[in-house]
Design a protein around this nucleic acid. Structure first.
Length: 441
RNA sequence: GGCUGAGUGGCAGAGUGGUUAUGCAGCGGACUGCAACUCCGUUAACAUCGGUUCGAUUCCGUUCUCAGCCUCCA
């Protein structure tokens, strides 16, 4: 039985699916305008982690993750690169897919694109206006947050209290601070679509309400995303969907809300303005996909990860140790429920505990060890990405090692050590095992 | 100001009302030309002040500190 922390009720709960035979799970996907950074990577790994566990215990799981391909950031990127928004979103969507793969993240079962649902969004807005939940102001359509009495129920916000410490300037066209855009006009050559309110484009929050319902129907089991999406994005989704269906119960939309924590650099959030963004592709030049994956899963998904090089190096060490143990075994990665690893994961996805468990098992193997390792591999080792090395570098390394061997045979230990230092500087570690020298990065 | 969440050994990180994980690093040793790898051994912690209890790091409350959100954000 899976236990999972539900952000909506703020407690760990037993997961009771609406239909045992078909689990429905939606997770907010990327806005495709840039290559992904390590923080994004964590979010996608966590989302996938839950999908993997669900698929491990239920016969059918539909995991949907949307692609936001219309958004101000994309418009900006298109302007900068002097191409169309479609070019931008296609380009970065493909990079996103490659990045997922390099980290051993499975592709979601469905990846709906926002721009494929424009008509549906327009219909949705019309109904919200008709039912008096939204209002029009000069080509803008806004959701009236006062119309949904449970507004803010996910993040624990209360409209009256919010006003006290209000940091946002009230846009003149908004009736209430929290009212958000359902549709906004596109001007000056900005991309857009014709609508009853003029040429424009949808607000960001809308797509998830529309696409999750159209792909999964509501209510569905789990809705996930990064912690920062709780407010306003997810609260807005709840408000829209519930208002649309005349409900006041957030669980008429999604039953369990799943949010992952952030990744901190030097005890600070990673952000572009601080210039401390770590891009995944840069790490992939130095670490294997599974090593990065292990580093990202070495902290419980709800906690912040203090990201630094030490963490990666530790993950690398652990990953190698496990690989050494498994390399001669014939294992098929799969989720074996009757393992200690599976039990750790079924308890709110306790990956750090599972990592500790596997290390204990390697120290003193039980007769069930293969089953444990298969489960471990299923969750932690889906990546095939290896650090890339070009042939020139390899032949240079091998040449140096040969020189060192000769020096050692002749008793020229100073020279041998010099060569080893040189290799160390190239990030190459050498090991003399049974008279043979092996090297690794 | 409001809302979340968190404070565990040098670092990372689970967990538990009493026997106090795990890894990395460190230290000692075996191995080695020296290292690395591997193996054996080992040090070390539960923010603060109260309360409950035979007993609390674990439960309750106080204080302090930190992070995230409240504005695009994973």
């Amino acid at each position: 039985m899976l236990k999972i922390y539900n952000s909506l009720t703020k407690q760990k709960e037993s997961f009771e699916p609406l239909d045992q035979n078909h689990i429905k799970y939606y997770s907010c996907g990327p806005t495709v305008y840039n290559r992904i950074h390590i923080g994004n990577a964590r979010a996608f790994i966590c989302a996938d982690l839950l999908a993997k566990v669900l698929k491990g215990i239920y016969p059918k799981v539909t995991y949907v993750s949307n692609i936001t391909d219309i958004d101000d950031k994309i418009i900006e990127a298109a302007k900068e690169e002097k191409v169309s928004i479609k070019d931008i979103s296609n380009k970065y969507f493909n990079i996103y897919l490659e990045d997922l793969e390099s980290l051993g993240i499975n592709k979601p079962d469905l990846q709906p694109f926002a721009t494929d649902y424009i008509n549906e969004m327009i219909d949705y807005i019309e109904k919200l206006i008709d039912s008096n939940n939204a209002y029009i102001h000069e080509g803008n359509v806004l959701f009236d947050t006062t119309k949904f009495k449970n507004y803010g129920c996910l993040s624990g916000r209360n409209l009256d209290e919010q006003k006290a410490g209000e940091r946002v300037n009230l846009e003149t066209y908004k009736r209430n601070v929290n009212d958000f855009t359902l549709w906004k006009p596109s001007n000056n050559g900005e991309p857009g679509w014709e609508s009853p309110w003029g040429f424009g484009r949808p607000g960001w929050h809308l797509e998830c309400s529309v696409m999750s319902e159209l792909t999964l129907n509501i209510p569905f089991d789990i809705h996930g995303g990064g912690n920062d999406l709780k407010f306003p994005h997810h609260d807005n989704e709840i408000a829209q969907t519930c208002a649309y269906h005349g409900s006041s119960e957030p669980q008429d939309f999604a039953r369990y809300w799943f949010h992952n924590g952030f990744l901190n650099l030097d005890n600070e959030k990673m952000s572009k303005s601080l210039g401390n963004v770590v891009y995944l592709e840069d790490l992939l030049d130095v670490y294997d996909g599974n090593q990065i994956r292990l580093a990202l899963l070495s902290t419980h998904y709800r906690q912040p990860i203090p990201w630094n090089k030490t963490l990666l190096e530790q993950a690398k060490t652990v990953s190698k140790k496990i690989n050494k143990f498994t390399k001669d075994l014939n294992l098929t990665p799969k989720f074996n429920v009757d393992t200690l690893i599976a039990q750790d994961l079924l308890d709110d996805l306790n990956t750090p505990k599972a990592i500790a468990t596997i290390q204990k098992l390697i120290q003193s193997p039980s007769n069930n060890i293969e089953s444990e390792l298969e489960t471990f591999q299923y969750i932690f080792e889906g990546s095939k990405h290896k650090v890339r090395l070009d042939d020139n570098k390899i032949s240079e390394i091998e040449k140096l090692i040969k020189e060192r061997d000769i020096a050692r045979k002749n008793g020229n230990y100073d020279q041998a050590d010099e060569i080893r230092d040189k290799l160390t500087k190239m990030n190459v570690i050498i090991e003399d095992i049974n008279g043979k020298t092996v090297w690794k990065i």
